[in-house]
Design a protein around this nucleic acid. Structure first.
Lengths: 248, 248
DNA sequence: GGTCGGGTGACACTCAGTGCAGTCTGAGTG
DNA sequence: CACTCAGACTGCACTGAGTGTCACCCGACC
């Protein structure tokens, strides 16, 4: 056969070739107007091979999330108990931002695509959901034993993901021009302020902690949150309260 | 033609008939093992009619979410500015719980189904996402002008949805036996405490509330949560604490 | 040379979803 | 009563995603 002029790309990066072909067609015709046969033909492979590399047509739009998710779970599994949990999941979220920031132009193209194709938005949701579950599972482990451990874990994970996505999306909307890292740091800082240090696992009948209120607004907003079992003796409660108020 | 023995149901509730037929087959064969033709045949209608009532096979599993979403947006649009924003979205979330609580057995069946069918989980995510966007849009309007308005709106919306789903799922996991309303109230209370009142004008320096812990486990789990500004006088704190402990 | 195994392509198949054309029915009108 | 018009239903054909199967090719290894 004659040398195929369409796809003289090297053999190993056939996956990359498929991604490139797919995005070329998606950008010039639109996602729904492009069939898998079109992509495979442009990449110079058989239709069946496409599904060998990507389980579905949507997957070709998010080729690196699987690896990133694995990185995140590894990160959370590795750095065990010595870090503050909320801080830890915020750092994990920054990993995802790093993946986006690696290829700004690609990320922006993908963002525009997913924004206007409902099917891709739905797929992206399922991806984001897996990140959120990874964070929540980690936090559930760290919060085990606390009164509302799983609730707290789920809420914090959702808040972290929401803050991350808020910053990420505004960065993508600006065509990847600004400093994505700073935006995400700011957003995650907000979440850390809101949930930062919670109750300690000492399981004392009384616990009190000084926290800084989430409002960036006025000063003098420092509050003390005291959680006490109803059957705790009053003197014990006041004692705990005094130490919490006294310190700092 | 002879009287069709398969589906002597009345004409108007053909939608309900399709839902009933679908769930019957889903429960006895599984979701993926059931084709749309099967459902239509059992309901005694043509395959084409199924798609007149439901745009996709997944939609038959969530027949009432569209209405509930409309209710929620109407609720948020109606009750304008006079309520506290976070409180308002928590109330909106309770609307969704109400829909689930209307038909506990149906909700539990659907929960078990979506738990084990990835495609349905993905679809549910897109539904939940629309609720979350509705809440976030409302909050963005209410928080407009604040420094981090959209960030705050997105994070609070995500936290509310996560708390609601945490309580809802634990209720569904218990086969709809416990008090779903109380569980959701507790979970949303946690979010309201975390984000609830920012800079309120008439805020007392001390607040205390007796709550029932979410754990259905042991007795004696009642706790008192006390929130106090750091600069509040100690006697005032103890006074508030005594009244909270005293009642009940 | 023979053979074994992984990557590949071609074909056939199922099933979700859509467009179209024809049919039935029931309400309104002369 | 005959006519018609609108809306709901049906059947049919078609596209396209995703899967199973088998034959093939090619490099490695004996």
């Amino acid at each position: 056969m004659s040398s195929s002029s369409a796809a003289p790309a090297a053999k190993p990066p056939m996956r990359e070739a498929l991604v490139a072909a797919a995005f070329q067609l998606f950008l010039e015709r639109g996602y729904e107007q492009t069939t898998v046969d079109d992509i495979a033909a442009l990449a110079g492979v058989g239709r069946r091979s496409f599904f060998r590399y990507f389980p579905s047509k949507e997957d070709v739009v998010f080729p690196d999330h699987e690896r990133c998710l694995a990185d995140m779970t590894a990160f959370l599994a590795a750095g065990g108990e010595e870090h503050e949990p909320v801080r830890r999941v915020c750092d994990a979220a920054r990993l995802v931002l790093g993946m986006y920031a690696e290829n700004p132009t690609f990320s922006v193209q993908r963002y525009r695509l997913t924004k206007q194709v409902p099917g891709l938005r739905a797929y992206e949701l399922s991806v984001v959901w897996r990140y959120e579950r990874a964070l929540a599972e980690y936090l559930r482990g760290r919060f085990a034993g606390r009164p509302d451990g799983t609730l707290r874990a789920d809420v914090v994970a959702a808040a972290v993901v929401a803050a991350h996505n808020n910053a990420l999306r505004s960065w993508l909307r600006s065509d990847g021009l600004g400093d994505a890292g700073a935006a995400v740091d700011h957003a995650l800082g907000y979440v850390q302020k809101a949930f930062g240090r919670g109750t300690e696992p000492g399981a004392s009948p009384v616990r009190a902690a000084a926290v800084t209120a989430g409002e960036p607004a006025g000063p003098g907003e420092d509050v003390v949150v005291l959680v006490s079992r109803r059957d705790a003796p009053l003197w014990r409660v006041v004692q705990e309260l005094e130490t919490a108020l006294g310190r700092c």
